[in-house]
Every structure is written in structure tokens, then in C-alpha cells.
Design a protein around this nucleic acid. Structure first.
Lengths: 332, 332
DNA sequence: TTGACACATGTCATCGTTGACATGCGCCGT
DNA sequence: ACGGCGCATGTCAACGATGACATGTGTCAA
């Protein structure tokens, strides 16, 4: 900036005035400044500016478990579509689903003085350490899963309701033994909720819950293996509910390999080529982009000063898409 | 920081020394400072620090066309896996494949004084405006496609070679009329290269090039429609080469809807459920994570001062994965 | 003619942090 | 006993920008 000022023969302050449309500047001076700016390729230093005006960094920190997973990618896209038009930059990091990485990412973001924090919390974490920041007015919103140990804004899918609807759909088509394939049980919020929805649907239909019909696996291969185990049971399920996209893919693969076209399947979360599978896959679709946009809007509204002590919870509804695999009748 | 200093009864400088392990500090003082830091929940202000030390922001700016596309999501994941261990933060923005957004994103990143710039360039852009920055020593690497109007480092897939291999595979299985379904022709680098590879393979086999067998569409639906047009030709192709993931999905869907299991298909870029499609999809797989990591490592090596005037080009090889759809014999 | 006022620009201090250099004190060797 | 050295800490300025306030000039009404 000093260079530009020297070039034009004015003070840095005047250049600043021109660039910020702040205070009166002679038309001719303005033009000469603009020209010098172009000539020297000057770009104001955002870091310095932010520091001076005491503002937080015009950025939003987003923590997701993995970038490669299209679900979270789409969530991130939703976030970006909302924050960018507001002039905010998106800073992203992936936690690999570990509490340590998540925490270190958050620390980095806080040190950068981001204007808002959006977190897809890792299973094992505890977010009490963020209380101070939240109390200090920093907008913090959790996505896909609520915070642990702290009441905070969060945006989640209608996991329990969606799972209930999906399983009820299978029940409505005559199934009485329905297998559940989900992520590892432990602590994952979405898995818990969807499992509850599964039990809700069974209970509503007066069907018994059979622990033997519940299998787990974290990735696609593990889910496949889980399905193989279920099908090998003495009294195997006639239908399966896959509680997430990897479980769905694993189930689809396992059934295809076993050439079992008679087992009904409903997956949680939609897949790209669902309609051309054999049979076409029935799913309970989430709306990841909507989760992102809703969460981002929540952050913005907090930024615009709607502090509100109370934690706001937003639930994005799911949508059952019947395509064939969920409408198969029981094979026995 | 001043607060911490006051709490302990020392100067800010001493606190700074403790936190940066810089210069000698009495053990006792160090401990008292650390305790005050904990007590007050103090976090050093990175913006101020960076400004003072005149360093660039410890961040890498990444521009991708869309976050929702798993290809670019995986690329971003690859980038992050390399830059994070180096203490660099990843700043991401999506250009929606438009030159304007791309440029405005780059401007934002430059104003933030990022340490490096990684760009998946939009089709219509011209990157001459980045010459100054590059000359000034800012590491700039282009991913998936080279820069336009400027020689710069870039990491791309072996598009032409991969496409040639894929099409040659179809030729080897007896096909003589092979349709090409790609993105809109215009200017997109990857489309051009893959198209060249297609022509290379035809030429190598002594097959004629027939313009009627080339169709385009930007998204999945358009690609589907393109395939429908190809199949409706008086002398239709017996095999198809789909030049990107959307084209592949569109082709798969179109063939499935038309119940045409006799048309051979090779897609460029792998798809999640490729193996369970009917028939299983043969693809020329790219390695998006490798593109990301290679590009990130290039940036880091430039950061470590391997300036080198010359632009470095890195090509990530593709891999043909035969699964069935590409090995179908011609139906006539 | 004078003073009030609008306008164009300048001066200075400051944001939070850290480099460069200064200070004060105790200890050691000669 | 004294110079010199090392340690612990302090002082000051500066990074690049802008807010608060000051200055200087021209215009116009009284």
C-alpha cells in the first residue's frame, strides 16, 4: 500500500480511503490511485486489515470426517453455497473420524480467529472445551450429529423417523424378519438413531426384535461380510435395512455376488446409480446439501446477532424413494 | 497476550518467548506463564503473528469445480493429507466451472496471502493474470487440467493414453464402430485429450473416424440422451466409450432403460458400484487421490525453495479395469 | 472582510505479535 | 576487585492497515 501511495504521491491513508470508499477523495486523485493499484498489481492485505479493525477472520471453519465421501462433500458444497455470497471463505479440514484430529483442527481454526465454526463431530469426542467460545458468542453449529457434553446448535437428518419409515416399508410388504446392517455400534449418533428407528418400526408392527439379525461393519467390505453372515443364519432375514451408504453398497455387492435377487433391501442415504441396480434400490434419501445450507444459515443468523442462549436444533426430513428392491415380497 | 502477561506480572515479550521457545526463560516463569495461558484460555492470534513475521498465511488455497463431485472431493482429500502434516491449513472454494468465480476465489486467496495456490482451472479461463504471482515465487500448481496462456506446474491424468487404451480394448474385442460420449466439446482440456486418445486408437487399428459416432452432454441426463441418439443411428455403434464419470453413468442408465445388454461400454473414471452393474462396468480408472497428493507435494517442494523457472508436468497413469461390459463382443 | 463550513488530505496511534537491541544482575577467572 | 560474560527480562519499533482527529484550502453568506 505504501508503494501505491508513493507512486501517486499521497499518503497510505488516502489510498485506503479510495479502496474503501471511505471519506471524500478528489475524483482525479481517486483515478490516479486506481491506476497505480492496477499498475503495481496491489492487493490489500486481508490479514492486516482484519487485525486492525479487530474483526474476526472472514472465514468459516468446517470440520468433516472425510472429504472423499460424497455425502460430506455435498454437505460442504451446501455450506459453501451459503457462506460465499456473504463474502466468507471456507476453511476445511478432515478429522478422519478421530477426536484428536478434530480437536487439533478446531484449535487451528480458533487461532485463525474464524468467524464461525461448523463441525461434523467425531464419535469419540467431547465438546465441553468449546463452551468458552460459545459463551463468547462465536457461532458454532454441529452438522449431521449433535455435540457431546454440550448443548449447541445442530442440524441433523431425521434419522430415527427415516429409518422407521424405511423399515415400516419393508414390514408393509410382508416382511417379518428384517436384518439391520449398520456402522459399528459403539457411539456413533446416526447409527444409534437409525437403530432406534428400526426398533420403533418393529415394535409398531408387533414384530419381535432378534439380536441375531443385527450386524455391523464400518466400511463397504465389512458391511458385505456382515450381510453374508446374516444370509447364512439358520433362519435368515427376508429383508435387509442398510443404515448408511457404505452399508447399502456392501449389501448390494453381497447380494449380487450371492446372486440373491429375492432379498428385499432398503438403504439409508441415496446412491448415484440406484435406479439401474438389479433390482433398483429403494432408499431413504437424505438431503446432504440441505444439511449444509441449513447449518450455514444458522451460523449466519448467529453472526448477525441472534445470540440466544438456547441451542437450536434443526431436523432435515428424509424421503423414501421406492424403486424396487424394497418392494420385493418375502421369499418364504 | 497482554492479559496473560499482566496476570503473571511480566511483559508480553516474555510470554511470547515462552510460547515460541525462543530465548532463555526461567523455569519458574515459564510454568507460571503456561498456567496463566491455561487459566485464561489464551490462544495466540495467528493473523497478527503472520503479519509480524512477514510470513505468508500458513494456508493453501484450493479451487475445485464442485465439492459434491466425489472425483474432486477425493482430489481435495489427497491434497489435505499432504499439506496438513506440514501444518498448513486448506482453504477451499468451488468455481462451479466458471472463470469468473474461479478468478474471484483466487483473488480472495491472494488477498489472504496464502502460501500456495492449487487450481483445477475452469474451461473458459485464461491464467496470464497469475504470471506476476508466479514470478514472485508463489507456488502455483494446476490440477487435472493445465493452465491456459501460461506455462505452469500441473498434474494431470494420462487422459490421452488412458482413453486410447480403453478404446483399443474395445477394438481388441472386435468392435469396429465405437461411439464416443463426452462432455461438451468446446474447450475442456480433459475432453479434448480423451477424444484424441479415442482417435489415436481408431487410427492405430486402421478404423475410420465417423463424426456421427461422437455425441456430447455435460451432465448425466444429457449423456443419457446422447447415448439414445447414438443407438438410434441407422448404423449404430456396437460399443461405447464414455469419456467421464457422468457420461459413464448416463450411458449405463440409457443402456439399462433400453434393456440393451449387448452394447459394450468402457467408461473413463471408476464408479463405486461398477462391479455389480449388469454387466459389470469396465473402466479406465483414474487416481484422484494421487493427483491431489502429487500436486500438493509439488507445492511443498516449491515452498521449500525449488523455484525452477521451468514448469513441471506430472502425469498420473490410469489403469484399465476389465469387469465385463468392455469385453462384450459386437452384436452384429 | 470575516468566519463558518465543506472538502481534500495528512498525522498519529493502534490492532497483537515478535525481531533487534538494551538493561540489570550474579558469577567467574585473574 | 574488576572486567567480562551469560542469563533473564524489558523496551521499542515495526508488520499493513484504518479509526480518530488535525490541518490546510477554497467557497459562500453575512
Amino acid at each position: 500500500m505504501a508503494d501505491v501511495a508513493r507512486e501517486v504521491g499521497v499518503t497510505a491513508k488516502t489510498v485506503s480511503r479510495v479502496l474503501n470508499d471511505d471519506g471524500p477523495v478528489a475524483v482525479e486523485t481517486r483515478e490516479r490511485v486506481m491506476e497505480a493499484v492496477r499498475k503495481l498489481g496491489y492487493q490489500p492485505n486481508l490479514m492486516a486489515r482484519n487485525m486492525r479493525v479487530g474483526a474476526r477472520d472472514a472465514a468459516i471453519g468446517l470440520v468433516i470426517p472425510e472429504m472423499g465421501n460424497p455425502f460430506f462433500g455435498t454437505v460442504a458444497g451446501g455450506v459453501e453455497s451459503v457462506v460465499r455470497p456473504r463474502g466468507l471463505t471456507l476453511i476445511v479440514g478432515s478429522s478422519s473420524e478421530t477426536a484428536e484430529l478434530e480437536r487439533s483442527l478446531v484449535a487451528t481454526f480458533l487461532a485463525r480467529r474464524v468467524s464461525g465454526l461448523m463441525i461434523v463431530p467425531s464419535a469419540a469426542g467431547d465438546h465441553r472445551y468449546l463452551r468458552t467460545e460459545r459463551a463468547a458468542g462465536l457461532p458454532i453449529v454441529f452438522l449431521d450429529r449433535p455435540a457431546v457434553g454440550m448443548a449447541a446448535d445442530h442440524v441433523v437428518s431425521g434419522n430415527r423417523e427415516g429409518a422407521r419409515e424405511g423399515v415400516a416399508h419393508l414390514v408393509a410388504h410382508g416382511h417379518r424378519r428384517i436384518g439391520f446392517v449398520g456402522d459399528l455400534p459403539a457411539v456413533l449418533y446416526t447409527r444409534r438413531e437409525r437403530f432406534q428407528g428400526y426398533r420403533d418400526a418393529l415394535a409398531a408392527a408387533g414384530l419381535p426384535f432378534d439380536r441375531a439379525l443385527v450386524e455391523s461393519g464400518h466400511d463397504q467390505e465389512a458391511a458385505s461380510a456382515a450381510v453374508v453372515r446374516l444370509l447364512a443364519l439358520p433362519d435368515p432375514p427376508t429383508a435387509l435395512f442398510a443404515a448408511n451408504n457404505f452399508a447399502s453398497m456392501g449389501a448390494v455387492v453381497a447380494l449380487a455376488r450371492a446372486r440373491r435377487r429375492d432379498v428385499a433391501l432398503v438403504g439409508f442415504d441415496d446412491l448415484p446409480l440406484a435406479e439401474v441396480l438389479e433390482p433398483p434400490l429403494t432408499v431413504v434419501a437424505q438431503d446432504p446439501a440441505a444439511i449444509g445450507t441449513a447449518a450455514a444459515e444458522l451460523v449466519l443468523s448467529r453472526l448477525d446477532g441472534r445470540p440466544s442462549r438456547a441451542a437450536h436444533r434443526e431436523q432435515i426430513p428424509t424421503r423414501l424413494i421406492a424403486r424396487g428392491s424394497g418392494e420385493l415380497p418375502p421369499s418364504r
